[in-house]
C-alpha cells in the first residue's frame, strides 16, 4: 500500500493494518519522519514538498518489490506527504511486517534509505524570511549505496 497525499496520517491506524496482515507475521518495524527546525537552514518553520505525480508511486512500488525480493516482507505500507508542512508535522511513514525482526528492520530501513535518493520528491525549507530548496546530502547517498 503506497499513498502520496497532502493530509496527515495516523501511525496507529497503519500499525493496526499491518497487524491484520496474517498469522505469519511475527514482527512489525515502522519509521516516521518529521519536519525538524534545522536542516540546510536554521530556524526552519516549515517545508514545502513537491513531487512528480505518477513516477513517485512507481519508484516506491519498485523499492517495495526489491525489498520483498531481498527479505521476508508480508506487507509494506508507505505514506509520503506533499504540499506545505509545519514544524513537527509528519512527513513520511514506512511500515513493514515480516516473520522475524531482522527482515522487518532491514526492509524498513532499506525502503526509507532508497526512497530518499530515488523517489522524486523535493523539499523546500521555509524560515521566517526566506525559502531554500534542500540539497541532496552525500550522507544520504552513502546510506542508500550501502544496500547495493
Amino acid at each position: 500500500m503506497i499513498r502520496v497525499q497532502q493530509q496527515d496520517f495516523d501511525p496507529a491506524e497503519e500499525y493496526h493494518a499491518l497487524r491484520d496482515s496474517g498469522s505469519g507475521t511475527g514482527a512489525i518495524a515502522t519509521f516516521t519522519g518529521l519536519v525538524r527546525d534545522s536542516g540546510d537552514l536554521k530556524g526552519v518553520t516549515g517545508l514545502f514538498l513537491e513531487h512528480y505525480p505518477g513516477m513517485t508511486e512507481q519508484v516506491i512500488e519498485g523499492l517495495v518489490r526489491e525489498a520483498s525480493q531481498r527479505w521476508d516482507v508480508r506487507e509494506a505500507r508507505v505514506i509520503h506527504r506533499i504540499g506545505r508542512l509545519a514544524l513537527s508535522e509528519q512527513i513520511v511513514f514506512v511500515g513493514v511486517c515480516s516473520a522475524h525482526r531482522g527482515d522487518a528492520f532491514a526492509a524498513c530501513e532499506f525502503i526509507m534509505d532508497a526512497l530518499k535518493t530515488s523517489a522524486p520528491f523535493w523539499k523546500k525549507e521555509i524560515t521566517g524570511d526566506s525559502e531554500h530548496w534542500v540539497e541532496q546530502k552525500a550522507a544520504d547517498r552513502d546510506r542508500s549505496q550501502s544496500w547495493d
Partner: peptide
C-alpha cells in the same frame, strides 16, 4: 522527459 535536481524527499 523530465529534468530535475537530485531528489530530497523522506
Amino acid at each position: 522527459v523530465a529534468f530535475f535536481p537530485p531528489v530530497t524527499g523522506g
